Amino acid sequence: MKRDVTLMFNEYLETMKSNFEDSINAQQKMLEGIEVFANAKIPAKGISEKVEVWSMDKVKLYHFVPKVKKTNSIPTLISYALVNKYYMMDLQEGKSFIGGLLEQGIDLYVLDWGYPTKDDLYLTLEDYILGYIDGAVDYIREETGNDKINLLGVCQGGTFSVIYNALRPEKVKNLITMVVPIDFSTDDKLLFKWGKYLNIDTMVDAYGVLPGDFMNNGFLMLQPISLTTNKYLDLIDDVDDQDKINNFLTMEKWIFDSPGQAGEAIRQFINDLYKENKLIKGTLKIGEEIVDMKRIENPLLNIYAKKDHQVPNNSSEPLPKYVASKDTHNELVDTGHIGLFVSGKSLKITIPLISNWLKERDQ
């Protein structure tokens, strides 16, 4: 009996010792974490050097400073979505999608849509596509002496690029679309379910310009546990790791940098595309012009992500069959919507794919 009591007492002491050590380690980790957060370095909005070369209203066109000798004679314009900022593609040295393309000798420009305010509530899709995109394209054509340029459209910016290509085919040499929503008839993924039932007219009438936070909260609800809870709980394990904290804060800064949405533009985007699928039906009007995707005869590279939680694969994948081009290629990458630009798959697959594809079609 005495032996059993002694054994139990020793086990108790070992447990107390282990708990005490865990407590000390946790306190040490927390103290180191405080120092890590105090020394956290969050880069500016994009790390690649660039120069503002053109502007219209709040929209700016940037030209990235080449990192190596240019290998492509045709410049490429990036059109990003309106709901977030393009610098997600250029967050960190060595992991930058834009930096990777520059290192491949691609001559890159990007449109920054700015931050709409109340005086922009009447901006339409025509303003964005035949105003801002067309104005930027014309500037690049004149500046570089090229009759045509390449377009690289991301997500909603890809939809805009497809529409622009169909309306102004004489100005586009090659079209690259990435995680682009094209066929809005699908009910896959929560975003495409919401879009069909969203009372956008009431929202635009009430807000004028939809607040960025409102839009961002909607995207967070696509994966509520993962995006609003788990990632913060997981952070505890990495609180004393400077690189991981820097990465976390950098991504958080981008996620919550959400511009407002010009009312009339998002009204048409939701009503004409999500609800009526007019782009696929051939009935979409931009201004007074009908968008006919069969006018797209130039080469098309369509890249989409297997694990995309925002844009369903069956919305992106059909694009080539709606254009007239004989030179089309679909590429499904085993990653997510953002992973296409920031993960190891971006460095190993996406960047080389785009670079090689453009170089083969540079003449």
Rank of each mutant, 00 (worst) to 15 (best):
G131Y: 05
T6H: 02
S346C: 08
L235H: 09
K326P: 00
T202L: 13
E288H: 15
S258C: 14
L358F: 14
Y304M: 10
V59Q: 03
K58P: 02
S23R: 13
K173P: 00
I270S: 03
I149W: 00
D90V: 02
E289H: 09
Q27W: 14
N72E: 12
T202A: 15
F97Q: 01
I74D: 09
N217Y: 14
K359Y: 15
K275I: 01
E93N: 12
K275M: 10
V51G: 03
K41T: 10
W357M: 13
I255M: 09
S48A: 02
D334R: 01
A324I: 00
S258V: 12
D4G: 00
K29Y: 02
D238H: 08
D107P: 12
Q104I: 00
I78P: 04
F248G: 14
A265D: 01
W194F: 07
S226C: 03
N330H: 13
K359V: 13
D241F: 05
Y132R: 04
E14D: 05
L235D: 07
L210D: 06
F64R: 07
D362R: 06
W194C: 05
I296W: 11
M293Q: 13
G153F: 07
L31I: 14
P43T: 03
G336I: 02
N356I: 07
T229A: 13
V333A: 08
M178I: 14
I78D: 05
S48N: 05
S161W: 06
